[in-house]
């Protein structure tokens, strides 16, 4: 047990030196069964090669920063246990479908813009002053959108989505799920402001329902469901005579 070892192959890319990303192999001790892929990367960084670059923060599946491709599947590396791969080597690559800045670090600007585009905050037709009190909500009303509010912006769903891979104008799973979260919120009145973005060609209608986003989502958000529901709802608004109400 003490001298069990595991091979980690990690993507290396330094734009100043490398033409294209390449894999580098590290063999490290697999000392304890609770080790995750992120622990392995941290071990490499502190003991073997300080120049390996990657993002992480919380180590508990809540900050959403440690997403990478692990043996070809988008995963939170803080929640991908080495014991599930050993004795096979573990290949760690930057998330698919995004430009690579360095090693395992991707450029997430595009995702950030998309998140902002759907206005992920509560919109009121008329803001009430702070002093007038809170907007109340029952547990049942929260249940309406709870699932879609669990998103941690890890972008695994974007890495899993071939539609986004082929056309990154697509608004994408998490942004649409988040739009749905606010549209279903009893306190929100912003549907009309979000519609132009979500009901666009590059919005829900670009989705051809591969469904892989919901498979890889670590938080059970089910963005595919949010997208199909939005398709149905926007169609109903169009078809039904009373559909265009707020």
């Amino acid at each position: 047990m003490a001298d069990k070892r595991i091979t980690i192959q990690a993507t290396r890319y330094d734009p100043d030196k490398d033409e294209r990303p390449r894999l580098q192999s590290y063999e490290i001790p697999f000392s304890d069964d609770s080790m995750v892929v992120l622990d392995a990367l941290n071990y490499i960084k502190s003991e073997v090669d300080g120049s390996l670059s990657y993002r992480w923060s919380c180590r508990m599946g809540i900050c959403g920063s440690c997403g990478m491709m692990v043996n070809g599947t988008p995963k939170l590396t803080c929640n991908a246990f080495l014991r599930d791969y050993w004795p096979r080597p573990v290949v760690v690559e930057p998330l698919n479908n995004f430009p690579v800045i360095r090693d395992l670090v991707i450029d997430m600007d595009d995702f950030m813009h998309k998140l902002k585009a759907i206005k992920p905050w509560i919109i009121r037709r008329q803001e009430i002053p702070l002093g007038a009190g809170e907007h109340r909500q029952t547990n049942e009303q929260i249940d309406d959108f709870r699932q879609f509010s669990q998103c941690i912006n890890c972008m695994l769903c974007y890495a899993a989505c071939p539609v986004y891979g082929l056309n990154n104008e697509f608004l994408g799973p998490a942004a649409i799920a988040l739009a749905r979260r606010y549209n279903l919120d009893s306190r929100d009145q912003g549907l009309k402001q979000r519609l132009p973005v979500i009901a666009d060609n590059e919005g829900v209608w670009e989705c051809s329902f591969v469904g892989e986003c919901s498979v890889v989502c670590p938080k059970g958000v089910d963005p595919a469901k949010a997208i199909q529901q939005t398709k149905l709802e926007t169609t109903m608004r169009f078809v039904l005579p009373y559909g265009n109400r707020d």
Partner: peptide, 18 residues
Amino acid sequence: PREYRWRMPANWWTRNRH
């Protein structure tokens, strides 16, 4: 910074059962 652009491999649909 010069980023490495993502290109979808032609055989993408054979890479995953789904």
